[in-house]
Design a protein around this nucleic acid. Sequence first.
DNA 1: ACGAACTTTCAGACATTTCTGAAAGTTTAG
DNA 2: CTAAACTTTCAGAAATGTCTGAAAGTTCGT
Lengths: 183, 183
Amino acid sequence: MEISEKNQSFVYHFGEMGSKWGFNRTVGQMYALLVITENPLTANELASALSISRGNVSMGIKELQSWQLVQVSHIPGDRKEYYRAIGSVWDMANTVFEERRKREVDPTLSVLRNLLLEAPQDESEVYAQQRMQDIHDLLEMVTSWAAELQRLSPEQLGTLMKLGAGVSKMLSVKQQLFSNKKD
Amino acid sequence: MEISEKNQSFVYHFGEMGSKWGFNRTVGQMYALLVITENPLTANELASALSISRGNVSMGIKELQSWQLVQVSHIPGDRKEYYRAIGSVWDMANTVFEERRKREVDPTLSVLRNLLLEAPQDESEVYAQQRMQDIHDLLEMVTSWAAELQRLSPEQLGTLMKLGAGVSKMLSVKQQLFSNKKD
DNA sequence: ACGAACTTTCAGACATTTCTGAAAGTTTAG
DNA sequence: CTAAACTTTCAGAAATGTCTGAAAGTTCGT
């Protein structure tokens, strides 16, 4: 299988970028190709389209499955497995974020929680614990906020996003009301 | 210089994590150590505390400076350079996000924009362009939203975060009103 | 039970990234 | 100008990550 020149530059670019997002170059390319291809592809098609070995495709697919990003389907009377990207672009972004959170943020939070349980032994550990607490709080805030966003429907998200600059206005009104009450 | 056992596990963990966030293990360790240490450190102190070479520290500092995460200071009568982490934890997170956006999202947006300018040559390119458009729109939305968040003060952010589940309620009310108007 | 059509695994080749340490560069004091 | 006290650079060593392709494994129809 060959790819058109235009699609190729997309696929290659995603290969480079993908490697910054937690998977390697060929996995990025495979995923990009699956996303822009309407009909499902076989492992051999992926291998020939990207000029990589059959074995590499097999491992890449496994990786993408662990990220819950691809789906396997079958065609009656055909033994081959056909792969396609799962869900909408928004679903994909959601999945990648959640996966990254599980792999990167959650372990950090757990390390921080353990370290914060122990009593500081000296001056320097007091300061260190304060900084760890800051980081812990920030990560928890971001995590719960992200969970909240994931619960929203795509339409609600669109509304929220379009709100744009409105958010800060809304907040400043809210805060003024709040501080007035206190006085 | 030695680090206490507790601080060491923090530093090492951040080394591992840091490598997933765009810089390598030792750079992550250096940064973690600077964050939890109140007084500025010299390059030699960093090297001995982390058991890495002096040259490596020099390159790491350069990297951290390119991320705008460390500051150099001097002590009168002392030739050495003293390094410390810049700003609050929130500032750090902001900086890292912005830096990552510049390095990862912006180039992708530019590639996508170029590809979307050209007319599709066939059926398959039409579909491909639709997916590229989806990704483009999503990235733009996220980018502008992130820019908006950065403009908020830490306090406003706190309010917004604490709003939590409130956001979806607020939005659903807003949308009901909106759809009523349409009827 | 056998063979055809497929997929997965994994040892070793290859590629990339990171690290060291010696040498070169810079700055300041005298 | 020179020496001392520092920092930076960079070639090559070490470590890590990726890819290939042959062999082993799986599944299905007969």
